[in-house]
Write a protein that binds this DNA or RNA. Structure first.
Lengths: 192, 192
DNA sequence: ACGCTAAAAATGAATGTTCATTCTTTTTGC
DNA sequence: GCAAAAAGAATGAACATTCATTTTTAGCGT
């Protein structure tokens, strides 16, 4: 048992180090040796947990994405009104991006570069289904505009990623008031 | 004169090759040798036009960004009504992203990764001033919401980048109708 | 028009470094 | 004392950059 414990700690340290270094330097500018050093582990040890560098990055991506969607859909059930459901999900997303800055930045970078394998990308997309379902329902009930889900997503949720990157760069300081404004903008852009 | 002509052609070929390869593989996964090959040039020749790889990428970024803003603000003057000005600019941005797909994707990747030097980033940001001015005026005239320009930008314009990336990945086919919808969503999210 | 020349531009082949991955040895937990 | 886990050193490939030459160019005198 103690042995297994230790392994999971090392794995977590590797994942954390990967996220941190990739955020600051990008995927190809973070050598395995630096990841190892930051995780207090030998380079060779990485290969006990992951097949190779690409496998490492894919797995980290999928795990972070899974954590993200789990966080976002916590407390969400499909029996509440569409507008309330949208508000809940939107605010959870905002929460995540404010609280788990590192993870959120990592996802933003993965989603905008050819860093992740296509199959892992697909894998990560799966979990968003509840949101698509909600929109479908909203459209049927005539509450939200009959637009493509990609437009809805682009206008209601994706802007948060942009704000987060700006915040990271020190261009802009995001606070609770901004978030309320942003939520209103999001809702205005999709409601009928 | 003929000498200079030839040089500019080579330089353009290098810029084009860089954009193409970085879009498909990312900055650090595109070797100078491949850029040279795609531009039909010797690797050593690149160093006649650029100091090093980082300088190459910074210069390409700044040039593409300049071309982008020149395109976007063509025909724009500050004496037209705010709502019309917004519509003109928004639609020019959409045009650019549809017509100059490669350039637009390149900018999206640069803006979401640590690939570009901070100073070059600043340089590229300068040209957006007319848009900020327009918003300032819109707020004064009580036509648009009194929000931070970053929120306005995030919600009204940045979503286009997301749609473009989705289109590039074959997830979503963007057409003229979608653009009209997107424009309406953008306007709804910022108008008072 | 022509050939010559010196400078500029361009090249392909080295150079030295960095890095992912593997190999061999050591340490750990039981 | 043994199997799994971890380590550090070794290996070999990929790459940015430089170097030594060759090619092209633009001007010049004839």
């Amino acid at each position: 048992m103690a042995k297994l414990q230790k392994s999971i700690e090392k794995r977590n340290a590797l994942v954390k180090a990967t996220i941190n270094l990739v955020n600051n330097n990008g995927f190809h500018a973070t050598p395995m040796s630096k990841i190892a050093k930051m995780a207090n582990v030998s380079p060779a040890t990485i290969y006990l947990y992951f097949d190779n560098k690409q496998d490492l990055i894919n797995k980290v991506y999928i795990e972070v994405k899974a954590a993200y969607t789990a966080y976002v859909f916590k407390n969400f059930t499909s029996d509440i009104p569409v507008s309330k459901g949208f508000e809940i999900i939107w605010k959870r997303i905002a929460d995540f991006k404010l609280k788990e800055v590192e993870e959120a930045l990592f996802l933003a970078q993965c989603d905008n570069t050819p860093m992740i394998d296509e199959s892992s990308r697909q894998e990560g997309l799966k979990h968003l289904q509840p949101l698509l379902d909600l929109w479908e329902r909203g459209k049927k009930e005539g509450i939200i505009k009959p637009l493509s889900p990609y437009l809805l997503y682009a206008y209601s949720i994706n802007p948060l990623s942009f704000l987060m990157v700006m915040q990271q760069r020190g261009v802009f300081q995001l606070n609770q008031d901004h978030l309320e404004d942003a939520y209103q903008a999001a809702w205005n852009s999709i409601k009928k």
